[in-house]
Design a protein around this nucleic acid. Structure first.
Lengths: 337, 337
DNA sequence: TTGTAAGCGTTATCAG
DNA sequence: CTGATAACGCTTACAA
């Protein structure tokens, strides 16, 4: 009955069916306010009956806008998807975009400034881009921001001046963790930090130290791990070797904490009795530990949603908005501290 | 000099510059053989000088082909990306597609047969689709296969008759694991299976039993876990309780094995001395265990690449090819068995 | 508020 | 081998 096979129904078909012109149908489809209620109603009915879906190519050609947002991810796509924080961020990006009529194009940044991704984007094949890569070359990023509106997710952008940025307040997050440890009475608090070459890791460490100093306490041992479980275990051993008497520790990622906690336990210490542990992320890993992990939550999903809000806002014409948006962290108290 | 600002140069501009018609330029761009050497040369020069890039939308509109492939993933996108097997598959899909001039559109299957994703695809906005969802409604999938060429990755498709399928031979994988255990002299072999409602899990269990029976051995305890670390630990306890004297075990996923192995060790048994362990997947998890895990590898990345090969082949007109492609598994021998 | 008509940049069908 | 000339499906002034 409905769709008369022969390819998808067109605007034309809907117009005929509803007894109006193509232009009117177009207005309805695009939510123009200047359409009378009755016409609106009948056009909608016709659209539903015919199962009409706008042809993206035609629309793009006529309007010079693609209605597509590019999701730019790091080259190393497999490892990338294994990261729960980024997975959640993408989830947020997707869900928010789903509410709009934009489509998400998955692009992998080849890092080289002359790569396929960049050319594609420079060719005007997307209206805007959200990039969640943490290690892409500056020249690539700079070229990108010149080609189209871009929103970066948690990026070290000192050198990239274009684009918008959504980030988490890592310094405050580090402070939150340390303060909590202090509040529950810990006096000798260590820090299992992230890689020293990562900005977020350093900021967390900075906040940690600040809060301790603020409380009149001297920071315990600080050792860096590589944000993996195994790295967390290794660093934990080093910390215990440096000071066996710590009674609290702030670990820069939940994943590292899952590696560190068994080490603490096998050293004959209880959690949180002897050593209180606070993680960072509030990733699923925080719930897999024997004693549920108290951690500082990053609003990863919300971060993705925010990135989309911003890009859509910019595309809507508000190019003068804040360039940097800082999202707050939050302590999630469970059993480990 | 080159591009005359005002938007990107068009076919028209190139034609004028080269002193030929639009049609001729189009032929050159699309590699038509019927173009004289001189003309070819001058058109190429014009293209280079102007920095011409074909407009995708116009091309799609005129040719009725989008040069886009939709990657359809399950609704639960966050959890999805956390799965290393699927992440690797996507990686394979992406990498192979990167070599072609197709673009990847990320779509999330809303599962409802009337969802946005389906309508988008029915609207002809992609030439083909690769779906890696394991739990999507049949009606959705059926509608999908009627709308465009589809390749499924490892799917229970008894009820879906359309589309192409790439899958791993799970039965053979289960056999491989069991045979290895037998070959290294184990006599009392248990199986830590996956969820009973998952086809792949059942097939592995089936292969396991077959190989044991074939070897004249009676299968040891078989207990299901939920494919998580914690689930693996729980099931392991049940198995040990059922039969403390097992000397070998095939675990249906590496992740569950990482949960099971500590249980074995804390029961005072050595690995592989007292109990040999074989996992499944060859995921990164297999390398995080104290004693590196011997496992049955799934060619996850290759699976993605194969899916792309098939969809491109079908789009190239070879619709009469095999509908099901079975990929082999492979034993990766490490220390645990 | 609604309709008319002129494109948008390519491809494709014919002639030549 | 090359060039007109229709489509392709939609948006968008401009009229009505």
């Amino acid at each position: 009955m409905t769709a008369t096979k022969q390819g998808a129904p067109t605007l034309e078909a809907v117009a005929e069916r509803a007894g109006v012109s193509r232009a009117t149908v177009s207005r309805v489809v695009n939510g123009s306010p200047k359409v009378s209620p009755e016409v609106l109603e009948s056009v909608r009915a016709a659209i539903a009956e015919l199962g009409y879906v706008p042809n993206r190519a035609a629309r793009t050609l006529a309007s010079k806008t693609t209605h597509a947002i590019a999701l730019v991810v790091p080259e190393d796509i497999a490892r990338f998807f294994g990261d729960p924080f980024l997975a959640a961020t993408i989830s947020g990006i997707h869900d928010r975009l789903e509410e709009s009529d934009y489509v998400l194009n998955l692009m992998v940044a080849s890092d080289k400034p002359d790569g396929k991704t960049l050319r594609y984007l420079q060719g005007g094949n997307a209206d805007g881009a959200v990039v969640v890569s943490h290690h892409t070359s500056d020249s690539f990023l700079a070229a990108l921001t010149e080609a189209l509106p871009v929103v970066f997710g948690g990026l070290p952008v000192e050198t990239v001046t274009g684009g918008y940025v959504v980030d988490v307040d890592n310094v405050e997050g580090g402070r939150t963790a340390a303060r909590h440890l202090v509040e529950i009475g810990r006096k000798r608090v260590a820090h299992l930090a992230g890689p020293q070459h990562m900005r977020a890791a350093n900021e967390r460490a900075q906040g940690f130290v600040e809060a301790l100093v603020e409380a009149g306490l001297e920071p315990g041992p600080v050792v860096s791990g590589d944000f993996t479980m195994r790295g967390g275990a290794e660093a934990m051993r080093a910390i215990l070797a440096a000071d066996p008497d710590i009674d609290g520790i702030f670990v820069s990622s939940d994943l590292m904490a899952t590696g560190a906690m068994p080490i603490i336990l096998s050293a004959g210490k209880s959690i949180p009795g002897d050593v209180a542990v606070v993680g960072f992320d509030d990733s699923p890993a925080a719930l897999t530990t024997d004693v549920p992990l108290t951690t500082v939550r990053q609003p990863s999903e919300y971060m993705g949603a925010t990135m989309v809000d911003i890009i859509l806002d910019v595309l809507a014409g508000h190019r003068d908005r804040e360039r940097v948006t800082m999202l707050p962290t939050e302590l999630v108290r469970r059993a480990s501290a």
